[in-house]
Amino acid sequence: MQGYREIIESVPYALQLGVQIIDSNDSGALFELAPADRFIGNPMLRAFHGGIICGLMECSMAATVMRFTELKLPPSLITQTTSFLKSASVDLPVRVRTEMTKTGMRICGVSARAFQNEDGTYVAKCSSLYRVG
C-alpha cells in the first residue's frame, strides 16, 4: 500500500504546490501547505488565491481516496463544491483535514476543511465525489 508521501510525489501538481502530509487516522488525514508569495490572489490583503485553496483541498482529498481505496493512480474527480469562509493569510501555513464520507466500489465521497490558526478557525470547507471504479 502506498503511503501518503509516495502518493503526493506521484502527482506533479501536488509536488508543484508543495503539499505535505502531517498526520493520518482511520477516517482521513491532515495536510499542510507552507506560505509563499507565489500563492497570493489579492496582493493588498496578502491572501491565498481561492483557487490555490481549492487545489490544495483537491490534492488532499484525492490522496485520501487513493490511500483508502489503494488506487495506484489518482481517482477521477466528478464534482467539488468549495465554500470560502474567511480570507487565508499568505503569511501562515494552511492545513487541510480530510475525512472519507462514502467508500463505494465505484464512487467515493470525501470532505475537507481548511484552517490556519491553532484555534481551528476555518478558511474554507468542501466536499467532493470521485469515480474509483
Binding site: 501538481y13 490572489g41 490534492c59 489518482p74
Partner: peptide, 24 residues
C-alpha cells in the same frame, strides 16, 4: 506545463489549476 499535470500516466492539467483559473 508538465508540472501542472495530474500524474505521470495522465498528463492533463490538474483540476486544481483549472479551478484557480476559473476563480480568476
Amino acid at each position: 506545463r508538465p508540472e501542472l499535470a495530474r500524474s505521470a500516466a495522465n498528463m492533463s492539467i490538474h483540476p486544481g489549476v483549472v479551478m484557480t483559473a476559473m476563480d480568476s
